[in-house]
Structure formats: structure tokens, C-alpha cells
Amino acid sequence: MTTTAVSQHQTKWWSGGKSPFNIEYGKLMMWYFLMSDSFTFGAFLISYGTIRFSQNYWPNPSVVFNAFPGAGHANLPLAFVSLMTFILIMSSVTMVLAVHEGHHGNKNGVVKWMAWTIVGGLCFLSCQAWEWHHLITGEHVVLTDQNTLDVIGQTMGGNPWGPHLDPAIAGEALTRTPVEDLAKVVHAHDHSHSIDQLRAMSREQLLGMINLDELHVNRKGPIAFGGYFYGITGFHGFHVFSGVIINIVMLIMAQKGVFERRGHYLMIEKAGLYWHFVDLVWVFVFLCFYLI
């Protein structure tokens, strides 16, 4: 209480005998860890930016990320990732509320807000799992290097969001497409037959089911897109996952009264720093992959 009267400007921070940073050791080390982690994420994102700047063409994120669970093929650009962003901001708020309760030594408050933070983290991870699944298993008709048509998803080995292909070129490529790939092309637009039923059909039957005007065919996009997207969002998702584990440990320790006996909730503050950092990184992942 009395110490607050001393101004930080009057204190000789560098004259020895005290920490010049005025912060508990563990928290200071958490800050340094987060600083180094931000260089790791920064290096990844800058590497992505370098490759993107070296390309003549890059897919438009509003075209790539336009799906929403349960909305079928509706075109809802960036809607789902907005939800994910909102969930993460919200869980950051509940985390800072847990830290706030910790400052006041309110055990029940800490436990309540930590629980909500964990729920938010799990929601975010579930959203990411759905998004990855949707991108990997998506069926997009593309022009192959052999000038035939094929169906691919967004994977590390292929990107289906190249420039849109002129229907005349698509029609010509269709005549060269092997029958097993034709079955996949039909299946990409029409799920009324199973892929096995389609494979049993003849070439003429399959061609009769394809309407060139409705067929959206793209060239293949830059292959680096998948590696960077899954690599960086995966690394971020891994941070969210470990953050959830840390938060669960903190919740259990708070519930058991460990911090109450210790007399302070500094561990909640350290876990909070890590959790906010995860939110901070998402601000930039969101910026680099979805917005620009």
C-alpha cells in the first residue's frame, strides 16, 4: 500500500538490488518466450508473403473461404472465419476476466471464467477441424497438366483455385479426359449417384450428364498455397490446443485451491499471457490468409 506513493520515475532502476523490469521472474520469462514465438510465427508469415509476392497469380481468399457448416454450396465469403475470430476474441475476454478475478483473489470467479475460456478454445478448434475437412475433401474440377480434367481438393499437393478456364478449352479437355476421371467430374456437381454407380457407366452416359455451361473449371493455382495455409493455421491450432491443455491444468489447480494457499494467482496471469498471444497471432493469420 505504502509503496504506491513512490513514483516509478524517482526509482533508480539500474542501480542494482532490484529488478529493473519490476515484474515477477516467471512472467518476464513468459514474455521473452512469447517474443521469440512471435519471431517464429513472423518468419512463417513472412515466408508466405515472400512466395506470394513472387507469384503472378494468387487465389482470392473470398473465393476459397466461402463455406459455412450446414449451408451447403451457398456462397458466404469469410462468414465462417468471422465466427472463428469472434470466438477467439470472446475467449480472450473471458481469459482477461479470469486474470481480473485472480487479482482480487476470487477463486470462484477464476474457475468460472477459466471454464468459459476452455469452452471457447475447444469451439475454435472444432471450427478449424471442420474448415480443414471441408477444404481437403472439397471437389473442384481443374485442368491437369496433361490438358484433361480432374477433380481435386485443397491439399498440400494441389490447389484448385487457379484462374477460371474458358468453357471452350474445358470442352476440349473433356474429350481427352479418361472415363474414371469423368465419373469424378460428374460426382463433383451431382451427388444423386454414388461414385461407384458412376464408375460403372459408359463414357457416353457420363458425357451426357455433364453440362458445360454449369461446369466450373479452373486452372490449378499455386501449389504453395496449401503448404503455407495448413502449416501456419496448423501451427496456430497447435498453440490453441496446448493453450487449452494449460488452461485445463490451471482450472484444476485453481479449483483445488493451490493458488489460494499460495496467496496469489500469478500462474493464471502467465497462462493468460500465453492465451492472449494465441489471439494476437490469429489477428495476423486472419489478416494474411483471409483478408488481403
Partner: peptide, 11 residues
């Protein structure tokens, strides 16, 4: 809380 903290600020 810890010896590293010289000046406490009130939450």
C-alpha cells in the same frame, strides 16, 4: 508476491 516487484500497482 515476489521480490522482483519494487512498485506494486493496484489492480
Amino acid at each position: 508476491v515476489s521480490t522482483e516487484i519494487t512498485i506494486h500497482h493496484e489492480p
